[in-house]
Write a protein that binds this DNA or RNA. Structure first.
Lengths: 113, 113
DNA sequence: TCCATATTTCAACGATAATGGAAATGAAGG
DNA sequence: CCTTCATTTCCATTATCGTTGAAATATGGA
């Protein structure tokens, strides 16, 4: 992964509304949510949300598909995984005990135990 | 973990120099690096780096200890792990196959396999 | 004490980002 | 075709961020 791409993804997540949108979509899983559902759920103006979804989309963190009048957004788990790996890859030069907190993260995520 | 704290950490990482600093410290592991070493390594002005280290430090992503005239910075692996968990916790509502990319991240990090 | 090194603080400038009102686009139904 | 609903685009305003030069603080050694 390239540095610019990672910065783009981190910037996209580094804003309260967008972070909330992404986490909402993470929980929604495969079903995803329409822009309107997200807006109502988070109490954000439709146009504001639209530009924020656009930023998340350009960063590759969400995908969208049209369904009738609505547009369904979904979290991009593979893009997120790439980012997480990039942040801590090559950690601690082989001394696994130093980055033990990192090696334990999957134990702390609900569905990945 | 609280939303504001996560946004603070993401914002701290969402900048090319700071992301490079953090990843450099991740690789440096327990030894850490002095501010001067980091500045030379990344070719950043000392005062610019200082404010960026301050931001990373306030976000809890790095720690610092004085050693003679130098100040040694180290990556805070536990803070990073907390952030990573926060980003994807409660994912996919029990359908593990959906977030398989997430469950595989530790296999992709050098020292955590 | 005086000097050199290491790092931080201060002040200011230019650039970038977040928000919301208003208008525009796209899709479904009568 | 017209209306309604869903979402996006445009535009202007305000606020925040990154960088730099200059000065200040802190440490160690002659």
């Amino acid at each position: 992964m390239e540095s610019n791409l990672a910065v783009g993804r981190l910037s996209a997540l580094a804003q309260p509304n967008r972070l909330a949108v992404f986490r909402l979509l993470v929980r929604a899983g495969n079903e995803g949510m329409s822009a309107g559902e997200i807006a109502r759920s988070l109490n954000v103006a439709a146009n504001t949300l639209s530009s924020q979804l656009n930023i998340l989309s350009h960063a590759g963190l969400v995908t969208s598909t049209r369904d009738g009048r609505s547009i369904i957004y979904r979290a991009a788990f593979n893009a997120m995984a790439d980012l997480m790996v990039y942040l801590v890859e090559d950690c601690c030069q082989g001394h696994a005990e130093i980055c033990a907190p990192i090696s334990e993260i999957t134990d702390r995520i609900a569905c990945c135990g």
